[in-house]
């Protein structure tokens, strides 16, 4: 479970997140929705400790965030990963990044680590690209490489920032189906997404955010009013899909 209390975050005196009180139960497939600039990416970066807390507390699996992060990491799939297309890394090298933190200093990845990485790549449908350099991969292929890396890290929490970006409609369906499978295997998944139609099919928990929290509840209990409050004027578009 992830518990967030009294969380506020400002950039240059502008409120990005206001008084967030949130509990994300263990084992859910949670979606964070909200318009652009709602603070969704900031919230997940705060949860992962990538940006320091200003006010408030975050507890992960019953431990204070800083203590939990000393021994664990999140499986994270960023919205966009900055990298040089000429960087001399193969897809397999990037997937192995997920496990590299658990290998002691001075040691390299062993054959067993590589076998484990290839098995995860197979699951993500990207094994045949293992030896391809990252600069040669398409957006969708690289997205799957990043998912394989997040899975290999063996974290109980997978956090995804708009995973459907760069994937075609068919690809999105199989991508979310794979996430659902991982969720059923016990991983808690938290995903930012704009694809409400897909979310309604796969997610079990919805977090509506627009700087402050508008709802956080089981997917079945969500109604159009909650979504309207979050998105404001864009409600008609959403009602169509919902």
């Amino acid at each position: 479970m992830i518990q967030i209390k009294d969380l506020n975050y400002q950039i240059a005196d502008k409120d990005i997140l206001q008084n967030i009180q949130l509990e994300i139960p263990k084992g859910v497939f949670a979606a964070i929705i909200g318009p652009n600039g709602a603070g969704k990416s900031t919230l997940i970066k705060l949860i992962m400790g990538l940006i320091p807390l200003q006010t408030g507390e975050i507890h992960i699996s019953g431990k204070a965030q800083a203590d939990w992060l000393k021994e664990h990491n999140f499986g994270y799939l960023p919205q966009r990963e900055e990298f040089d297309r000429d960087f001399p890394a193969t897809a397999l090298d990037i997937v192995l990044m997920g496990i590299a933190g658990s290998i002691p200093l001075g040691r390299r990845c062993k054959a067993s680590h590589k076998a484990k990485a290839l098995a995860v790549m197979q699951k993500c449908g990207i094994k045949e690209k293992a030896q391809s350099f990252i600069g040669t991969l398409s957006g969708g292929e690289f997205q799957r490489v990043m998912l394989a890396r997040a899975i290999l890290s063996d974290s109980p929490y997978l956090i995804l920032d708009e995973p459907e970006a760069g994937i075609d409609k068919v690809g999105v369906k199989s991508f979310f189906a794979l996430l659902k499978e991982l969720n059923e295997e016990g991983k808690t998944i938290i995903s930012i997404s704009h694809d409400l139609h897909t979310l309604s099919e796969y997610c079990s928990f919805l977090i509506c955010l627009n700087r402050s929290l508008h709802c956080h509840t089981e997917m079945d209990l969500v109604n159009a009013e909650m979504i309207q409050k979050t998105f404001g004027e864009t409600i008609r578009l959403i009602e169509k899909d919902y």
Binding site: H72, N73, Y76, P78, E81, M97, G101, S102, I103, C109
Partner: peptide
């Protein structure tokens, strides 16, 4: 030789190296 993997991932993307707890600080 000793810091090969840490230097590799630090050069690739320091922020993601931090996410996956790769000990790049030293």
């Amino acid at each position: 030789l000793f810091f090969y993997k840490e230097l590799f991932y630090l050069s690739y993307n320091p922020e993601m190296a931090k996410v996956f707890r790769i000990r790049t600080a030293l």
